[in-house]
Simulated scan of single mutants.
Amino acid sequence: MKKLTILFLFLILSNASAFKLMPMSYTIEASNKTKTALFTVFNDSDDPIAIQLEMRQRNMNSDGSEVQPETDDFLIFPDQLVLGPKKKRVIKVRWLKGNIDKVEKSFRLIAEQLPIDVTKKKNSKTDIKILLRYVAALYVAPKDGKSNLSVISAKTKKDLSRIVFYLENSGNVHQVLLKPSLKVIQEGQTFQVDNLEGIRGENILAQTKRYFSFVPPKGINVQKPYKIEFVNDD
């Protein structure tokens, strides 16, 4: 899970890649004596670019949307830089809050290309600017962390078109749904759910709940009682 690459790339306008941030997910574990995460920014372009980095808390709602308040839990060095053509720079993100708690904490590292012409070129053939924004995941995890997923409720929508279920992670670290398996059990019969769009690849943070929905498999009578069986092979 430590090196799992999950990319949130927002491209405002682009005809070429300007910079990259790696990795897109990093875990600072309790055994990490320096409590420091190392990220690398790469400038793939032929011109110098200005980059700004900041940390945010990561609070997730049950629908998967996030609230990202400011945090002073980290020191980023450097938090602003001008990166030359085809150059790279290691970014150090240090945890400042001492011992790691029993429950994993989740954060976002945001790297943005600033809309500044650091080349100061005159008579440019175009005024098009490329702005990139990367949002990486950073976790501060306890020793011997473990996720624990369970379905806590399920119901059919009023129009009978979908089944909505709540999935809870009562464990102390996050869990990404890389290989989810979903089944509906009714009157002794088991029905496999094949279409897991909107479920596969989603993240359940520690001590949080998420809800998902799916189209009932053929053969299910959603007006009769049923059970949901969910397994994630990580």
Rank of each mutant, 00 (worst) to 15 (best):
A16L: 07
F19K: 07
D46G: 15
L21W: 02
S147V: 01
I51L: 15
K224S: 15
V231F: 09
K105G: 07
S62G: 05
L38M: 10
I6H: 10
K155Y: 11
K218A: 10
F74A: 09
K120F: 11
S25P: 00
D127N: 13
P225R: 09
F8Y: 08
K146L: 04
M24G: 07
L13K: 13
L83E: 04
K2D: 15
Y26F: 14
I28V: 11
L11I: 12
Q175A: 10
N32W: 06
S25L: 11
F19V: 00
P217K: 13
A37N: 07
L149M: 04
I116G: 00
Y26V: 12
R162K: 15
K125A: 06
E112K: 14
L109C: 08
S170Q: 05
I163D: 04
L109N: 10
Y226R: 14
A16N: 08
N172L: 06
P115A: 12
K183D: 09
G171D: 02
K129V: 03
S17Y: 08
I163A: 04
L75I: 08
Q57F: 01
P78R: 01
K227L: 13
K209Q: 13
Q175F: 00
T119M: 04
L196Q: 06
F77A: 14
E187G: 00
S150A: 14
V231S: 14
K158W: 04
H174K: 07
E168R: 03
L177P: 10
D46W: 01
T126W: 02
R108H: 12
F77W: 00
Q113H: 10
A206D: 03
V222H: 13
I128T: 08
D79S: 15
V176H: 02
M22T: 14
F212S: 10
L13N: 11
N15M: 05
E229D: 15
E104W: 01
V184H: 10
L182E: 03
A154L: 05
S147K: 01
Q186M: 05
P225Q: 12
N203H: 11
P85I: 06
L114K: 12
F8Q: 11
G171H: 01
G171N: 03
S153N: 13
K92M: 08
E187L: 04
D194F: 05
P216T: 03
A50P: 06
G64S: 11
L38K: 08
V82D: 12
M60H: 03
T208R: 09
N43D: 06
N221K: 15
V231Q: 13
D46T: 13
A137S: 06
A141N: 04
F19D: 02
F212T: 02
K121Y: 07
M24L: 12
F77N: 14
I199Q: 02
T190I: 12
K224F: 08
Y211C: 04
M1R: 06
K3P: 02
D194E: 15
L7H: 07
L178R: 15
I28T: 06
Y26D: 03
P48I: 00
I199N: 03
F230D: 08
G219F: 15
L167R: 03
I76K: 05
L53C: 13
N221H: 14
L167I: 00
S153I: 02
A37D: 07
N123I: 01
E112W: 00
V93E: 11
S31C: 00
G171C: 03
V176W: 03
